[in-house]
Nucleic acid binder design. Structure first.
Lengths: 143, 143
DNA sequence: GCTGAAAGCCTTGACCC
DNA sequence: GGGTCAAGGCTTTCAGC
């Protein structure tokens, strides 16, 4: 199990805000040496704490549609099953299992409403899913 | 409106895969000069095509709690108001306004359940928000 | 609009505590 | 685990086309 201490947390915070920030600048901000920052980042990448660096919000939002889909399962469906179910699905931006009214919440993205509809159809076709509740994203408020 | 040509698209593709890729390397891959790459990236950041660079998937799975919060507003609340409301809030990973049952969906992250509770409390304190519906994230299924 | 070159900064890796 | 330092690479800027 990866252990993440206070320095690692600070690094993650900085990189989340700007993944291109130079190690040397992080070192200055955190009052540590550049090589330490480098080693920590490398260690976190290897252990999977930091899976990679990417563009903050996907530029595809300039075209296409997004939706938040709540998934209600039939009976008890394991996390593994959910993962398999969603793994083969196109357009999944984020998917989490939750404790609440729904069993899982998925954020989908597609080129247009029609394509989005097809993805939701695919989901509904599963015998393990009882119903879904879709909200179309109108606007991005943060991040 | 921002115009994105073929070079810009290639840059976005490379940066999506690795936001820390050096400009000089992108220049080699794309057969262009380093200065061109730099200027294009700067232009895209300014125009908002690239909002920023961050860590690919969030590290929260190692510590802390996440929650999906649906927000139901009192009467009509504009996107601008929602943005202001959520702008001052800690732990906001993603926030979108939606067409559906709720008015907005927010994904929150906090060090623990207590801190998460406080953030939701802050939200509820707003006179513009009628009620919220919180689902705690149990597991990350994708991304 | 794009390139190329020079100066300075950053990263890297070996070495030491 | 953490710091220092030198070599080489990267970024940045701007003259030139």
């Amino acid at each position: 199990m990866a252990v993440v201490d206070h320095v690692d947390e600070s690094i993650i915070e900085l990189l989340t805000r700007d993944a291109r920030m130079p190690f040397s600048e992080m070192a200055r901000v955190l009052g540590r040496s550049t090589s330490l920052i480098k080693r920590r980042v490398e260690a976190m990448r290897e252990s999977g704490v930091i899976p990679g660096f990417t563009i903050a919000a996907d530029p595809s939002r300039f075209e296409g549609t997004e939706a938040v889909v709540e998934i209600f399962c039939r009976g008890n469906v394991s996390t593994t099953e959910l993962r398999t179910l969603l793994g083969g699905l196109d357009g999944v931006v984020t998917a989490v299992s939750v404790a609440g009214a729904a069993d899982a919440v998925v954020i989908l993205r597609a080129p247009n409403n029609e394509a989005l509809g097809e993805i939701v159809e695919t989901l509904r076709a599963s015998s393990r899913i009882e119903r879904t509740r879709t909200s179309i994203v109108l606007d991005r408020l943060a991040h």
